[in-house]
């Protein structure tokens, strides 16, 4: 048995190495994306559209479903407290602000990390262990340009769109509780929803979702491309990509919330 502190130290050093690996991948993906957009590389256009459909269109239903019920839950949770103070109408503001600032971006990112990030890690991991990545390199095709960039761009485009959908569906969920359960006037509910929601709430949510998209894309591609050891390795990579993405999402969320809402107080 080794010293537990030494083990923790080794794990920490290992994760620093991986973080710098992910950042290096991010740098080359950004560079290649810009080069690709400027030069209008035709070959990747098809695979970007494929990825857009997979990452975005096919995630809409689950994201909307989740956000809708989240809206319902926030409305129910806050109604009791606000009722005691006689300000139950502020349920509307509560739902819209918490969805736009926090829950919309974070829940959407978590769904996408679980659905799309894991799929990316599994696909690239399988390609790695079955020599397909090496085959690409031998054909003088850069795997980052060919595989990572389309997935990265698709996530960057789709995650903010999905977040907007989620925000809207959360507000719909809250509206249903407010109107049918709490007996609030529908017109007033909608007015209050948007009276307290300022632009900053929305754009900070979008900025968050862009950062989440980059984190999910880079982590799952990095983990996939560094897969070792057959089917078991692919399984491990898939799990790792989801866990690491969740951790990254929460850390990024914490930092950005601090920057946007805490530092200027």
């Amino acid at each position: 048995m080794r010293n537990p502190i030494a083990l923790m130290g080794a794990a920490l050093l290992g994760s620093f190495r991986h973080v710098s690996g992910v950042l290096a991948l991010l740098r080359s993906a950004v560079t290649l994306s810009i080069v690709g957009i400027v030069k209008k590389t035709p070959s990747s256009r098809h695979s970007i559209s494929q990825q857009l459909v997979f990452a975005g269109v096919q995630s809409v239903v689950i994201v909307c479903f989740l956000a809708f019920f989240t809206g319902i839950v926030i409305a129910m949770q806050s109604a009791r407290q606000l009722q005691q103070m006689g300000t139950v109408i502020y349920v509307a503001a509560m739902v819209s602000i918490s969805m736009a600032r926090e829950l919309g971006p974070v829940f959407t990112a978590i769904v996408v990390a679980g659905r799309v990030g894991s799929a990316i890690a599994a696909e690239l991991g399988t390609m790695k262990v079955s020599e397909q990545i090496e085959a690409l390199e031998t054909l003088a095709i850069d795997p980052v340009k060919f595989l990572v960039v389309p997935r990265f761009l698709a996530l960057l485009i789709m995650l903010p769109c999905l977040t907007i959908f989620a925000d809207a569906m959360g507000i719909v969920g809250g509206f249903i509780v407010g109107v049918f359960n709490l007996g609030l006037d529908p017109y007033r509910y909608i007015r209050v929803s948007f009276e307290f929601l300022v632009w900053k709430d929305v754009w900070t949510g979008i900025v968050k979702s862009l950062c989440f998209a980059a984190a999910i894309g880079m982590i799952s591609c990095y983990v996939g491309l560094n897969t070792r050891g057959g089917a078991e390795g692919v399984g491990k990579s898939t799990t790792l990509s989801v866990v690491a993405s969740f951790i990254a999402i929460i850390i990024i969320d914490c930092i950005l919330t601090g920057i946007f809402f805490f530092s200027q107080m």
């Binding site: 696909e123 390609m127 079955s130 020599e131 397909q132 090496e134 085959a135 690409l136 031998t138």
Partner: peptide, 13 residues
């Protein structure tokens, strides 16, 4: 140069 892999390494997508 060309390379033929042991596992064929065809792109399965």
């Amino acid at each position: 140069i060309g390379m033929s892999f042991q596992s064929s390494a065809l792109f399965d997508s």
